[in-house]
Nucleic acid binder design. Structure first.
Length: 847
RNA sequence: GCCGGGAUGGUGGAAUCGGCAGACACGGACGUCUCAAAAGCGUCUGCCUGAGAGGGCGUGCGGGUUCAAGUCCCGCUCCCGGCACCA
């Protein structure tokens, strides 16, 4: 193709036509393979995009997330780093199972078909993945290490089985972790969750609560504040005291947890959670019928009903009295559902004057209210509004006259001396319930033996493979479908050899995603979850990109796993993700895209219409990465036009270069080989390089694109009405533009790079993705003249073009002589002060 | 209720340290090229006022600090997100 034809083709640029060609080329030259060679001198950079769940093809949300992550990965490649940018699939989980039930097929079929679809879409979307490392968590050589890690947790007492209240989704017929219950509903299907008593497996994340909290401090500035805040709230550490009460007719004390032990003298009754073992234990035989009737009512409530704060208080007297340990007072013991069985000790001392919930209860059942904190607020017993704040303690024996803080300190001393209580902390965080009664997950590697109890599957028998169960009924029955695979379930006990049964539950898929970022460093390794040298070389992840919806689920679990693996000596660090970038969502018309609203936008259709580059650029330019994008507000057509302008610049430069006399391809303009040419354009180019570099590093990708648009305008002007396309400064601009735009529009950038004659014939360097990032020449960043603003009383009245080196005195004099100042200031005698901030601003203050 | 975050033109958004508010786009208007259209290229586009030069107003509302406030301080309103009977 001649240069003229090339320019003609560029004029009719259709960004879609070039896609196939480059996809084939990239697959062949592999420009984005990470180098594991320890002698590679380049600095390493590890960037992970949260891996997708393989339900169907990629959608608009993926398009935004991966456009952002890819721009950052490509940037670090261009900066010459050895970048690891892997991809995998979070491939276990309920949707695969539900789809299999609907289609009467196998979850694996659906899952692997979707993975292939998504992989092809990722390649089309031109994401710079290292395709040699792809993983899927449903593959035995991955989930084997889930089982291995589970057993290591088990040995350390961090995985255990206990009975108790659990969240149960009646539709999916499975238990859910606390984190998977959103506003009282199943995170997956939206059904109201109920509570059931079941024996389940847990990870002891509560043991790490303090470390998760303390180490969050170190993430400040590198993680979004809102994620850290959400994690802190979720962990919900509170400080207070445990106080031991005696209950009449019972030998063992009953302990309560309170954050206000200073109000102990104001306790007028005692409440235990109705659905706790303690309540059933304390109730007298006379009160038992009422209690049992009440308990039955409570257990029928869904979480939503139970947690509704505006619900009227309910409860029942248990027939016994507790004794306040500090004043010997007898207070009645009630059972109520506003006290939760699994927080604190499941029992409270009620101080109705200073706690709204206790006050509501007291007023409902006519229990006494005693003020022990003096405030200037009206009597709670009259108003129904508790006074929970600070104040001087009264009616409190030795605490009288103390403040809240002093009172808490003093009462803990008193209780401690007498063995009646001690300081204590409590957490909102509960242990992570990890077992699921579903098929498509990692089998829990435990064997239940009638004589030996729980027996871990020996390591040399891992992985415990999922039985095929092809054709079996996978529909939810409340018991794992694995239980029906009798050949699989019935095994001999590894300890005693007797008949035993496998655990039939599978692991929560959040187990899979808690450590996958480390597996990428050692693809295919079969000596452990990852090779030590590899994980040391790459991890922790330098930049993690994904949605904020994982703020407390995945991100908290991954942090927990990392700390445990650090304690096991598998990792040398305690935090998995050094920096976190949350992208927003793509919505349409102000609402989340959904089938029911019929406002879904299909990514494939968008790409067919506008091409990959234009869609990527639309995603990047629409808003800062963390904000939502409303697709109704954007216009990818504008990006198609912009890409055409970019392409035409390269084509014009190439065409001008061909007949001879133009700057040679490959001349190192940035280093000063080509000093001649349009200095205004050179300054614009270097200013753009400087700006784009800084904006990209601070993740202001939308602004980086704006700066590239400015460079395009300046370059076009130089071609059309300046020195022309043959000017070396124009070539310099075109080359810098091409490299920088490759972050967002890889296809167009490759095409331009080829036009400009810069692409190597073959190998990874044949891609613009491996070109050097342009360097801004500091000499060209210095402005020849700057605009100085002249204000009178803070209002702009004139402007001056001045040298950046101008002195204050010179500038003051110039400013006072401007027409704008004379207009606004007829009488120079009225000047009170002149503030000069050379060279940018003069402010004349008049009376 | 508690804890975060936010509010800037018709729209998306920009604005290191307190120093030109509205970069860059979308949308709109007009021009140029053309037989014509499209594409391209260019000009204008916060509001009010004015023929124009210019002037007044202007970053949710009310105050304050400062020569100077989108930015800092105090008090509100509204919106978004998270948590929510956690003692």
């Amino acid at each position: 193709m001649t240069a003229a034809e090339n320019a003609e083709e560029a004029r009719a640029y259709d960004p879609r036509e070039i896609q196939d060609k480059w996809q084939e080329r990239w697959a062949r030259i592999e420009p984005f393979r990470a180098d594991d060679d320890p002698d590679d001198p380049r600095e390493r950079f590890y960037l992970v995009d949260m891996f997708p769940y393989p339900s169907g093809d990629l959608h608009m949300g993926h398009a935004e997330a991966y456009a952002i992550g890819d721009a950052m990965a490509r940037y670090w490649f261009l900066r010459g780093k050895n970048v690891l940018h892997p991809i995998g699939w979070d491939a276990f989980g309920l949707p695969a199972e539900n789809a299999a039930i609907r289609r009467n097929s196998h979850p694996a079929d659906w899952t692997f078909a979707n993975i292939e679809t998504q992989a092809a879409s990722f390649r089309r979307y031109a994401v710079s993945f290292d395709w040699t490392r792809r993983l899927a968590t449903c593959e035995p050589d991955y989930y084997r290490w889930n089982q291995w890690l589970f057993l290591r947790f088990y040995e350390r007492g961090l995985a255990y089985r206990k009975g108790g209240y659990v969240n149960w989704c009646p539709k999916d017929q499975t238990v859910l972790a606390n984190e998977q219950v959103v506003a009282g509903r199943c995170e997956r299907c939206g059904t109201e969750v109920i509570r059931r008593v079941l024996t389940q497996w847990y990870f002891k994340i509560t043991e790490y609560a303090d470390r998760l909290l303390a180490d969050a401090k170190a993430l400040e500035g590198n993680w979004p504040d809102r994620v850290l805040t959400m994690q802190r709230n979720w962990i919900g550490r509170s400080a207070g005291a445990q106080v031991h009460f005696t209950v009449e007719g019972r030998d063992e004390p009953v302990t309560v947890y309170t954050t206000r032990p200073d109000t102990l003298y104001g306790a007028t009754f005692f409440v235990v959670a109705a659905d706790s073992a303690l309540a059933a234990d304390l109730v007298t035989s006379g009160q038992r019928p009422q209690f049992e009737a009440y308990l039955e009512r409570v257990q029928k409530l869904t979480d939503i009903e139970r947690q509704s704060t505006d619900r009227e208080k309910t409860g029942v007297f248990l027939g016994v009295h507790a004794v306040n340990p500090v004043n010997g007072e007898r207070i009645p013991v009630w059972a109520a559902d506003y006290v939760l069985p699994d927080y604190g000790t499941g029992a409270i001392m009620a101080v109705p004057a200073h706690d709204q919930r206790d006050l509501d209860f007291a007023r409902k059942f006519g229990l006494p209210v005693r003020i022990v904190v003096a405030t200037d607020l009206p009597d709670p017993a009259q108003t129904g509004t508790a006074t929970p704040g600070d104040g001087v303690l009264v009616n409190s024996g030795p605490l009288d006259g103390l403040s809240k803080v002093e009172g808490i300190k003093r009462i803990i001393e008193i209780l401690g001396e007498r063995g009646l209580g001690e300081a204590a902390t409590s957490y909102r965080l509960r242990d992570w319930l990890l077992s699921r009664q579903r098929f498509w997950g990692t089998p829990i590697p435990i064997i239940h033996c009638p004589s030996c109890g729980e027996v871990p599957v020996p390591e040399d028998q891992l992985p415990v493979l999922l039985p095929d169960l092809r054709g079996a009924d996978l529909s939810p029955k409340g018991v794992s479908p694995l239980a029906a695979a009798t050949d699989w379930v019935n095994v001999s006990c590894p300890k005693c050899g007797g008949a035993a049964k496998r655990d039939t539950d599978t692991m929560d898929t959040f187990v899979d995603s808690s450590w996958y970022m480390f597996r990428y460093t050692s693809p295919g390794y079969d000596g452990g979850p990852f090779r030590e040298a590899d994980v040391d070389r790459w991890a922790p992840v330098d930049l993690y990109v994904g949605g904020v919806e994982h703020a407390i689920l995945h991100l908290l679990y991954a942090r927990f796993f990392t700390k445990v693996m650090q304690d096991m000596g598998l990792l040398k660090f305690g935090e998995p993700f050094t920096r976190l970038l949350n992208q927003g969502q793509v919505i349409n018309g102000g609402k989340a895209m959904s089938k029911s609203l019929g406002n879904g936008v299909d990514l494939g259709e968008q790409i067919d219409r506008f091409g990959v580059d234009a869609i990527r650029l639309t995603m990047i330019f629409a808003s800062p990465p963390e904000d939502d994008i409303d697709w109704a507000d954007v216009n990818p057509e504008a990006m198609v036009k912009f890409l055409g302008r970019v392409r035409r610049i390269a084509a014009d430069v190439a065409a001008a270069g061909a007949p001879g006399g133009a700057a040679p391809a490959g001349a190192d303009v940035a280093a000063g080989d080509v000093a001649a040419g349009d200095r205004a354009l050179r300054r614009a180019t270097h200013h753009a390089i400087d700006e784009v570099t800084r904006q990209v590093e601070s993740h202001h990708l939308n602004v980086a694109v704006a700066r590239l648009m400015e460079l395009v305008t300046a370059t076009r002007r130089a071609i059309d009405s300046g020195p022309g396309a043959a000017d070396p400064a124009v070539r310099e601009a075109a080359e810098a533009l091409t490299v920088m735009i490759s972050l967002f529009a890889p296809y167009t950038a490759e095409e331009c790079w080829t036009d400009l004659g810069r692409a190597a014939a073959d190998g990874p360097q044949a891609s613009v993705g491996r070109a050097p990032w342009p360097a801004a020449d500091p000499a060209l960043l210095v402005q020849e003249s700057v605009t100085c603003v002249v204000q009178v009383n803070g209002k702009v009245r004139d402007r001056l073009d001045v040298s950046p080196a101008i002195t204050e005195d010179e500038l003051r004099e110039l400013a006072l002589a401007t027409p704008g100042v004379s207009r606004a200031l007829p009488d120079p005698a009225s000047i009170k002060r002149v503030i000069v901030r050379a060279p940018k601003l003069v402010n004349i203050v008049v009376a």
